[in-house]
Amino acid sequence: MKLKKMMHISILSGLSLIIYVIESQIPPIVPVAGVKLGLANAVTLYAKVTMGARSALLVLLMKIFLGNLFTGTAVSLFYSLCGGILCFMAEIIMFRLVDDIKQMWAVSITGAIFHNIGQVIAATVLMGTDKIMWYLTVLIPVGIITGTFTGLVATYTLRAMTNKR
């Protein structure tokens, strides 16, 4: 039982790590730092639904630490941690507010918005300028679009996986 869970966590960590690394190789479409799809979040959402919050947090932290080891720097680790943890907390709260698992897109959007807020806070602390807050007016609408997409990916993956069993 415990071994099975551990295996699940490591498989999902690996999966989100692959998505994260591939995604970071795609050049940014718009000249605003921080705009990306965030597909790895779908894996975190999937882990939360199938295995609970604690395992999902493990998957997320594994992705952040190893992902930044492979692609980023010590500074980007701080950004990822700020965004990731705030995103995760918002998602856990949002999971309680929605009444059906099909509304996962709403959870995902909330997560995306708070991920952006977390990263802007990190940037404000690191750069010592609060003008970066201006980015939020762009990042939040974009986050709503990408968040919807990521949430739908998680919903359909979940549906496909549970039907097979």
Binding site: V98, Q103, A106, L136, I140, P141
Partner: peptide
């Protein structure tokens, strides 16, 4: 929360920020 409520909330937030971005720019 119902689906409708959530859609309304996020649509409002979306357009509020777009309008804010246009005003600020």
């Amino acid at each position: 929360m119902t689906n409708k409520k959530l859609i309304v909330i996020f649509t409002c937030v979306f357009f509020a920020f777009i309008i804010l971005a246009i005003i600020l720019s």
